[in-house]
Amino acid sequence: MTTRWLTPEEQRAWRAYIAATHLLEDTLDRQLQQDAGMPHLYYSILATLSEAPERRLRMTELAEALKITRSRLTYAVTRLEKDGLVRRESCRWDRRGSVAVLSDAGTAEVERAAPGHVETVRASLFDHLDEEQVGQLEAICTTIVRSLQGEDASTPAGDDLPWRRRSSPCS
């Protein structure tokens, strides 16, 4: 098989993408640590639960929404439980599964942290793009996500993604 090396244009785009994503994640993490005392991942868990019906999601669904492994999610939720921001409940349909539930304290915390987080996202990303570029960014990222999730037949992915493995309806 012949290696399909990146063209100079692709190499520049790839390096710019890597630099931008790393710098943006570092910026978001730093702001949330400073303002809310938590990493971006923990805020993302709280925010995702705050938008879910009844502020609850199956752990597998939460891992899939956040694109992280179930073991990483379990560790993070355990930490958030210790702080009283989240609690886990047994799944009513399957004793092996569990559901993450945002507590009232967790709701208050995400509401307190959200304005600073949104301002950082806006200042770091959207304030530098025009309306057309925002649409292009969405289209590009959506294409990449679909490809990596196996929705694009040309990309071998899908069931081997760690957040896609489902052993029970509530896990």
Rank of each mutant, 00 (worst) to 15 (best):
T2D: 13
W5C: 10
E9S: 07
Q11R: 10
W14G: 07
W14F: 14
W14H: 09
R15M: 11
Y17S: 13
A19D: 11
L23V: 07
L23M: 12
E25W: 10
E25D: 15
T27H: 07
L28T: 01
L28Q: 08
L28A: 07
R30V: 10
Q31H: 13
Q31F: 08
D35F: 12
G37I: 14
M38K: 04
M38Q: 13
L41M: 12
L41D: 01
S44R: 11
I45W: 01
I45C: 06
L46E: 02
T48R: 10
S50R: 08
S50G: 13
P53G: 06
R55E: 05
R56C: 05
R58E: 15
E61S: 13
A65C: 07
L66I: 05
T69M: 05
R70W: 04
L73R: 01
L73K: 01
T74E: 09
A76N: 04
L80P: 02
E81C: 14
G84T: 08
L85P: 02
R88M: 11
E89Y: 03
C91R: 03
C91A: 15
W93S: 12
D94M: 03
G97C: 06
S98I: 08
L102P: 01
D104R: 12
A105Q: 11
G106K: 01
G106P: 02
G106W: 01
A108S: 10
A108F: 07
E109R: 15
V110A: 06
V110D: 02
V110L: 10
V110W: 00
V110K: 05
E111F: 09
A113V: 07
A114V: 08
A114F: 11
T120F: 03
R122V: 15
S124A: 15
S124Y: 00
L129E: 00
D130N: 06
E131D: 14
E132P: 01
E132Q: 14
Q136Y: 01
E138F: 04
A139P: 00
I144F: 03
V145M: 05
S147Y: 03
L148W: 00
Q149D: 14
Q149H: 15
D152P: 00
A153R: 12
T155H: 12
T155N: 07
A157K: 03
G158I: 09
D159I: 14
L161F: 06
P162F: 02
S168G: 15
S171K: 07
